[in-house]
Amino acid sequence: MAISTLTLEGATCPMCANAVSNALHSLQGVQHLDVDLADQIATITYDDDETTDASIRETVDRASCATH
């Protein structure tokens, strides 16, 4: 198991958090995640035999909301 903490720049609403959460839940190997809009971070626990930190970062980048 590994843990990745990412900054969610521009994630300012529940829709942003939901988009990131849905994208990460669909990624193979993600075990647990916490999206904190107040601090604009996501903490992801994942199986590093099934996915990589780079894949997680790419998934978050694709799912992140544009600035409102």
Rank of each mutant, 00 (worst) to 15 (best):
D34H: 05
V30W: 01
I3N: 15
A23T: 03
I3F: 14
E58V: 03
L37Q: 00
D36L: 03
T43I: 13
D39R: 03
H25F: 13
D53I: 10
A17G: 14
T5C: 04
L8Y: 09
T7A: 09
A66V: 05
D39M: 00
A38E: 05
T5Y: 01
T12H: 08
D49M: 13
T52K: 13
Y46K: 02
D36E: 04
L8F: 10
N22A: 12
H32M: 00
R57F: 02
T43L: 02
D48R: 02
S4P: 11
A63C: 08
P14K: 09
A63K: 08
D49Y: 10
T51V: 04
H25R: 08
I56N: 05
H68D: 15
A23D: 04
L27M: 14
V30P: 00
L37P: 00
H68S: 10
I41H: 12
S55I: 13
H68V: 14
A42V: 14
T52Q: 15
A63D: 05
L8P: 11
V20W: 07
S26K: 11
H25V: 13
V35Y: 07
T45R: 01
C13Q: 09
D47A: 09
M15P: 00
G29W: 15
S21K: 09
D49F: 10
C65F: 13
L33M: 07
I56S: 04
A19F: 01
I3Y: 12
Q40G: 03
S55W: 15
H25W: 14
A23E: 04
L33P: 11
A63P: 03
A2C: 01
T5M: 06
I41Y: 13
D48K: 01
M15I: 04
S4D: 07
T43D: 01
A11G: 06
E58R: 06
L8S: 11
V20S: 12
A63T: 02
V20A: 14
A66N: 03
Q28H: 09
H25C: 12
S21P: 04
P14I: 09
H68L: 12
D36S: 03
A38T: 04
D53Y: 03
D49N: 12
A66R: 11
V60D: 00
T52V: 10
V35P: 13
I3K: 10
D36A: 03
S64L: 13
T59D: 14
A23C: 13
Q28G: 12
V30S: 02
D34T: 05
N22R: 05
A38K: 00
V35F: 10
Q31T: 06
E9Y: 15
R57N: 05
G29R: 08
V35S: 10
I41M: 05
E9L: 15
I41A: 06
I3G: 11
L8M: 06
S55V: 09
L6Q: 12
S4N: 11
L24M: 00
D39A: 01
I41V: 15
D47S: 07
D48Y: 02
V60F: 00
S26V: 09
A23I: 03
A11M: 11
A42K: 04
L33H: 09
V30M: 05
